[in-house]
Design a protein around this nucleic acid. Structure first.
Lengths: 226, 226, 226, 226
DNA sequence: TATGAATGAGCCTTCATTCAT
DNA sequence: TATGAATGAAGGCTCATTCAT
């Protein structure tokens, strides 16, 4: 695609292609900014169009739908998380240590870019199954999620082999568990950090920041091989 | 109010009051049905009015807002869950066993009435802090949530005393952890059971129903005192 | 009505009648307060009912209509203005002096109870001719207005006789003119005293309070016989 | 913008702009018709949309508000009146004669297009100061009003110089007076011409058409220099 | 007579989406 | 490909008025 054989022609195509992608990205950028300001439901296509310095019509040239645009945010987010997970795998550590590292990566990700976390939730709330089934971006999202999960599975498997994790568990089930728990804990953390709070903790003096480490501690002990 | 001395009078008051409450409940019933069919966002006040065989105006007589109506659903749900949690506490069991029981109760609750679980999520997504701060129903919801959490704390404390749970943990933090993880796992379960699936597991042959028991197993081991 | 011949009976009627009127008046009082706070259009029957400590149903027992209630305010206002005009007539002054007095009375009235002035305008803006034609309160309003105008006519006639006003004018026409001009000037004064202003005068440094005296001065000179 | 050098381009821009303005105007036209039929309060955006053969959404593309649309009517009206006032100033007449001319112009204006007169009243009744303060159309209206008043001031000043008007008066105050009185008289005239009448004059046989000339006569005499 | 729950037509406004240019 | 004016269905909500008790 970027390899040009018949210069004059191929290169022009390439540039166009590149510009198209850039514009697509910049639209997503804009959408993220607007959503950050106004929330997913309150954000309008008009605002996003304006922010991205593109006409509303053009928006629909790049995304068939508001939903599709939102999915694109999801996809970007899951991609990013995936990449970070992938990096962990490249390090030379015990399985348990890698799990610990994944946990930290996840927490950092959510702290740095909470919008994506919201986006994931938003995506999961979409009711229109048909649309999701057909949509290629939705498929990408799924793919990323699967891969992230697979990273966890791999870590667990390593752990089971190096003896740091009890190998009587099913690694896949365990991975799903780890993933779900992390999500749950992070969600709770996010929630409690908002002003009105779920208020669970007003008078409870619990350290939210301790929650993820605690999770890791309990999980580790719970998963540990002897 | 229900004690009638001068029949004619006192009873009439009582009946009115009762009818009012019944109508309120029946509106909530209707709302639940509609939301179940169409989802929270797609449900309209018109549909709910029609379903509850009440005029739109009457809806607003009982609930100042669409949001307020939704909060009422939340409140009902959290009340119900609370009651079930409370029952567990009355049984004579070890702390760990009670935690196990709570887990099962939670899972059953979510399976039987998934709408309430959705409602909780929806509630948490509400952005308008001001409204939540003022609204008495929202306060009720919070209260219920706090109480549910307290139930977990109590169980853990019992467990720490009877030696079934490691007492070096902070019971409050642990409770929050248990709660968050359960929520996370149940959410995942729900998600995967929907048609389009998060698809994480399509080709992964993992038994979702095993997830909560697995959580319990891991948590138990992780929390267990020696 | 208040004369009682057959005590037991007639008096009870009288009391009821009296209470009824009092309640009617207290409703009007309430309406005035609410309108003062919220304006004619924004005021609702609910608010008025609450303020008057009467049920909404009762409101409609006393006034067939929101419009009818508003007309009642008008009537009360025009009655009051009329009374004050009437008093002027009883004094022993030249025609011109009485006209001057009427002007002052009018200005004072509008300053003290601007609501009634608003009410008059509101009344005039009512489009539903049919309703106005049939409504007895509307007729009362008209009657009061006519009488006020007649007072002016009388003053002018006196002035023509005592030589303080040029008797070549038609006193009725002149009265209407005086009335209209006063109304116009007062209206302008009111307008400019509001914050946003008609802004006519922001940078014009004109003394609004001088306007009515100026009107009187010019009119006097314009009407004066030699 | 209308000067076209590179035809193809410049003209196309111009046409769009022109069409936009025309549509805006045609919406105002429609609004005027509907309001004439039903009154300001009873007129609905739906009706106006239908009348202007435009969708309701489009209405809100051109006017942010029902109020804004009504202000636009005001602005148009005040513009028109202003133009007519301006023309008077161009003639070669004595100050007093010009004042007379202004009076006639005003009366004619109100007779020909009573809607605008109503619109002015409606505008003055708007309570929402904030909106008026921000709104550019409202500012235009104010500007027009100021200018109209200035025309009167100019005429009076001319009259004071040519000796037709007593120069001991403050021309600004006098202008405001003339303006207010005219407004008051015209208002009364309008009122009495409506069917239900203020009824002041039913049995009074006064010639309404004589009122403005009478005003002028009295004012002239009242303002005249010797 | 008094109540106040119920009504429901109707209002203004929003916004995702389309389509002629 | 890009535009942005136009759409119109739909939404939440209000409030004067009625009527069974």
């Amino acid at each position: 695609m970027t390899v040009s054989q018949k210069k004059g022609f191929v290169i022009r195509i390439g540039r166009k292609e590149r510009e198209k992608r850039q514009r697509r990205e910049s639209i997503i950028d804009a959408a993220e900014e607007i959503i950050l300001e106004r929330g997913f439901d309150a954000a309008t296509m008009d605002e996003i169009a304006e922010q991205s310095e593109v006409s509303k019509g053009t928006l629909y040239l790049y995304f068939e739908n508001k939903t599709a645009l939102y999915l694109a945010i999801c996809e970007r987010g899951s991609q990013k998380l995936n990449d970070r997970f992938g990096e962990v795998l490249t390090t030379d550590r015990s399985g348990l240590e890698m799990i610990r590292a994944l946990g930290e990566v996840y927490l950092t990700f959510v702290r740095e870019m909470p919008l994506y976390f919201q986006a994931f939730s938003h995506y999961e709330a979409i009711q229109d199954e048909e649309f999701l089934k057909e949509n290629p971006i939705a498929k990408q999202c799924k793919e990323h999620a699967k891969q992230s999960l697979t990273y966890i599975v791999r870590c667990l498997q390593v752990g089971m082999q190096d003896g740091s994790i009890d190998d009587s568990y099913d690694p896949k089930e365990l991975a799903l568990l780890v993933w779900s728990c992390s999500r749950g804990v992070v969600q709770m953390t996010q929630l409690c950090n908002r002003k009105h709070d779920y208020a669970l903790i007003d008078d409870m003096d619990v350290d939210l920041n301790a929650l993820i480490p605690l999770l890791l501690k309990v999980l580790e002990k719970g998963m540990k091989g002897e």
